[in-house]
Amino acid sequence: MAGAFLGGTRGGTTVRPPWRSFGSFRRMKKLLIVVLGLAVLGVAAVAGAYLWAERGTKTPKLASGAPEVVFVVKKGTTARALGPELQAQGFIDDPRLWRYHLWRRGGLALKAGRFKLRASMPIVEIANVLESPPLPEDIPFVMIEGWRLRDTDEALTAKGLIKAGEYIAAASRPARFQASFPLPTRTLEGYLYPETYGVVPEGFNVHDFIQRQLNTFGVRFYDVHKTEIEAGKRSLHDIVVMASMLEREEPLPEQRPLVAGILWKRIDKGFPLGVDATSRYELVEWNDRKEFLKKLRDNTDAWNTRTRPGLPPGPIGAPTVDSLLAALRPQASDYWYYLHDAQRKLRPSRNAQEHEQLRAKYNVY
């Protein structure tokens, strides 16, 4: 009995002491608890990751108010490769969510082209948009600096985008449009920013196009310089009128602040501006010299700034940022007059006598 109690053999079979069997059981129990704990943590982690991914694909990056942006899928791009691009352009937070959704939905029938997306779209909706037909291909429409409403109308008509007069008619109803800046009441002349716009010929909407031009004016000029404009002594409309003249008067943007300083000084002193471009504004053809000379001799013409002091009745075309900034930030000088020689170089003068001498020297009459 003693041998059995101390751990001997019984009938050729090893007999372990009770305390040894009990210790092994405790160790096995601890090991089992650890294994079960790890299993629970693993399940919890998997469940947590699943819930995170499911929630992430259905929750947009921004709750609301995100602008519509055109997202381009290049030819040959894989659906998986779009994740980092979507993140870089601010549509999603984590490319892993994009990859998860692709796995969840079994891939994406991707097409190359342009698609309209918002950061307020969840990944589920983004994937649906990217699987839909892309936007129609657009064509460039070039609006030249200084163009009048009638010039843009003619160009749009020539491309078959509108019927003659539709652009002018729409731009003559400012109340139908919205802008981040105060709009004039009579016409949008001067506020429709000149740029190359991508337009889709099929279903071209003249109202939407004008709204894009107003938005561009805000982004390029007003929104950036709003505080400076409001702190200055000139109204936005006066700045636009002056800028439209500078666009036609001075071919070199770097010279426009000097010309603006001369013209504002003449305005403030009540002198006629003498900007002949204003007399061309109502001509059917801008370079019709015969009709232009008639306008110059017409002292009753409201656009004749040779005889009438102050600004003309309104802008005479679409100015660029260079001209708008020159009108906003004129350069002070001793000059009161200016002209351009045959090489279109600016020749300013301090008084009428110097001006006449320069006219004779460069044969400018």
Results as ranks from 00 to 15, higher is better:
residue 128 N to G: 13
residue 158 A to T: 06
residue 112 A to V: 01
residue 182 P to W: 13
residue 130 L to A: 05
residue 150 R to T: 15
residue 126 I to Y: 00
residue 146 G to E: 01
residue 144 I to Y: 14
residue 145 E to A: 15
residue 133 P to E: 07
residue 144 I to T: 13
residue 122 P to S: 01
residue 170 A to G: 12
residue 120 S to G: 00
residue 161 L to K: 08
residue 166 E to P: 08
residue 181 F to G: 00
residue 143 M to N: 10
residue 149 L to P: 09
residue 157 T to K: 15
residue 141 F to R: 06
residue 115 F to Q: 08
residue 113 G to N: 07
residue 132 S to P: 11
residue 133 P to L: 02
residue 177 F to A: 08
residue 151 D to C: 03
residue 123 I to F: 07
residue 152 T to N: 14
residue 115 F to N: 00
residue 166 E to S: 15
residue 176 R to Y: 05
residue 132 S to C: 00
residue 163 K to Y: 10
residue 148 R to K: 11
residue 117 L to K: 00
residue 153 D to Y: 10
residue 153 D to F: 09
residue 135 L to K: 11
residue 162 I to L: 13
residue 119 A to S: 10
residue 115 F to V: 08
residue 140 P to S: 08
residue 125 E to W: 01
residue 181 F to S: 03
residue 113 G to C: 05
residue 174 P to E: 01
residue 132 S to K: 03
residue 137 E to L: 05
residue 123 I to M: 06
residue 148 R to P: 11
residue 149 L to N: 13
residue 170 A to N: 09
residue 131 E to R: 12
residue 136 P to W: 10
residue 116 K to V: 05
residue 142 V to N: 08
residue 163 K to Q: 15
residue 154 E to D: 11
residue 180 S to H: 01
residue 154 E to I: 06
residue 131 E to W: 03
residue 155 A to D: 12
residue 155 A to E: 12
residue 178 Q to L: 11
residue 163 K to P: 05
residue 181 F to Q: 04
residue 125 E to A: 14
residue 146 G to I: 07
residue 179 A to T: 12
residue 143 M to K: 03
residue 136 P to K: 13
residue 120 S to E: 02
residue 153 D to H: 11
residue 115 F to Y: 15
residue 137 E to M: 02
residue 116 K to Q: 12
residue 128 N to H: 10
residue 167 Y to G: 06
residue 182 P to A: 12
residue 116 K to A: 12
residue 157 T to A: 15
residue 144 I to W: 05
residue 173 R to K: 14
residue 143 M to F: 06
residue 151 D to I: 02
residue 170 A to L: 02
residue 138 D to N: 09
residue 181 F to M: 08
residue 141 F to L: 11
residue 118 R to I: 00
residue 161 L to F: 07
residue 141 F to N: 03
residue 126 I to T: 00
residue 141 F to I: 07
residue 127 A to V: 05
residue 150 R to A: 15
residue 175 A to R: 10
residue 122 P to E: 01
residue 179 A to L: 10
residue 134 P to K: 03
residue 163 K to F: 06
residue 180 S to L: 07
residue 141 F to W: 06
residue 120 S to D: 01
residue 138 D to S: 14
residue 129 V to E: 04
residue 175 A to L: 10
residue 128 N to F: 05
residue 113 G to W: 11
residue 168 I to Y: 00
residue 169 A to N: 13
residue 132 S to M: 05
residue 127 A to T: 00
residue 159 K to S: 13
residue 123 I to C: 04
